[in-house]
Amino acid sequence: MTVIEVEKLTKAFKGKTIVKGLDFQLEKGRCVALLGPNGAGKTTTLRMLSGLLKSTSGIINFSGSQKGEDIRKYIGYLPQYPVFHPWMTGKEFLVYVGQLAHLTKQEASEKADQLLKKVAIYESRNQRIGKYSGGMKQRLGIAQAMIHSPQLLMLDEPVSSLDPIGRREVLTLMEELKTQTTVLFSTHILGDAEEICDDLLLMHQGEILESGSIDALRQRHQSAKFEIALRGDSATYLETLQAFSSVQDVFQEKGEVHVVVEDIELARKEILTKVLEEDWPLEKLALSKTTLEDLFMKVVKK
């Protein structure tokens, strides 16, 4: 079942198109990463879905909502840099936004306690938010997004600004949240996406270039590659390698040459023959598989 369906979603700011006709849908109960480099249009997309920005054109269809209905009640949203009223306590803020989401004071208070425990800031619930650390604010941000048990939880770069410990904690928390609701979160770190997500939307320059489950993407983009390390400047060998009939793509990474091949047997023969013929200063020759990282880098560098 789909939770939200997006058609031709477009956003232009002052003549510049930031988001260019996105089409995608989110399945209920999945955890989806909106992955892309900075400036890809991720935040703008999430803000349109949350109703904070108006789309220039396109349709956002929330399943289960009536036409013209306020879809904000189905959505929980955490901005990249959440700002709170510093004079409120964490508990007060949660009760406040809970009541704004149509909970009674009693319900909001109970839900707030429950969430404060879940995000592990219950001890600081009666402290002014102005005194919270960055990690605590981020966790309070997640709690406020969850206060009305939304059907879709959207988190904008939830771990990017955190230190390693805070990052780990929030990722663990997200693991738990994804069992309760559909989660869409943006990130520019593939590792985070791979770690907790089922599906991936790969976004670059306002377009979605790849989408699907992480496993399917991995399969689809998995091809064999040789990692070759040579003494000296390996750049001089790129052209020779590129010329082989078995070679699809050649790129450099961390001083090594990565050679994506179609036919492993043929490629091995071609490469090794060349190495012997021209006496290349070979230091390493290994067979491996392309990763999503390779895909990500390829897309981003284009």
């Binding site: 904070l52 904000r72 949203y77 901005p79 959440p82 700002v83 704004l100």
Partner: peptide, 13 residues
């Protein structure tokens, strides 16, 4: 300006 409105007005108010 501060961004609190981003949290408040994303609620169905």
């Amino acid at each position: 300006k501060s961004g609190v409105a981003e949290l408040v007005l994303v609620k169905p108010v």
